[in-house]
Amino acid sequence: MDKGTWTVKTGLAQMLKGGVIMDVVTPEHAKIAEEAGACAVMALERVPADIRAAGGVARMADPNVILAIMETVSIPVMAKCRIGHFVEAQVLEAIGVDFIDESEVLTPADETHHIWKHDFKAPFVCGCRDLGEALRRIGEGAAMIRTKGEAGTGNIVEAVRHMRAVMDELRKIGSMTTDELVAEAKELGAPLELVLDIHKTGRLPVVNFAAGGVATPADAALMLQLGAEGVFVGSGIFKSSDPEAIARAIVKTTTHYRDPEVIAEVSKGLGAAMPGLDIKTIPTDELLAPRGW
């Protein structure tokens, strides 16, 4: 019996496909998310919008917060560690977290190195803005990728930019001749074997979700139609006026993302979505997506 293998790690990500992963800060939130049909929850001390507002250094959540959520729900529980902070990751693995998010939403602990994720039995998900970044993370052992977007803004524009970048580059590699792939791998800063693999299959070797800015059912469907295999919703649920309704609506939309009639139906009367932020009004040094490389 082999535990913590690549198949088992990427396999859990496969099971999450077509689903919604919701940020929660209390067991009550987690229960609402589970009942609304979330395929997993992200256990946090604060949602990204509050992390953004609070400023300072954002760290891994108190293990008690995460454990309380793990005891409440039966769906997988994810938790975030800082980029490069492999000891926070060790702690999360030790308490039995099902998936670790090495996340730009927290303050990076290392500006040069990401965690060598192959050393862990728990699977990791990492953010990316383009294909090169995605493949560097997969090379380090990420079993799942999410585009970064700009967390805590309720603004989908960055998520769209990042998903389009990834999908465009996947298509480009698919249409290249074999002898162009080495230069392309160099250009992307990505491991050659992963570029060769994409050339063959036309797709990323792991599941890719969208994150960072999803606030409405239509936002979720937009990301899926652009190529995401599921969505993370951070502040979008519990910063809205009716979290339960919006959670259900986003789950339903994610299943029926190609069916405008369903999306129209579930979008009716949802109350106020989370307040949004124009990315241009955020000082450059407060943007989260450029964290990591």
Binding site: M1, D2, K3, G4, T5, T7, V8, G11, L12, M70, S74, P76, E93, G96, V97, D98, F99, K121, A122, P123
Partner: peptide, 14 residues
């Protein structure tokens, strides 16, 4: 029995 083998870190292949 659900999740009979434990959490994700106990998932396995055989």
């Amino acid at each position: 029995k659900r999740n009979a083998f434990g959490r994700q870190v106990d998932s396995f292949e055989t």
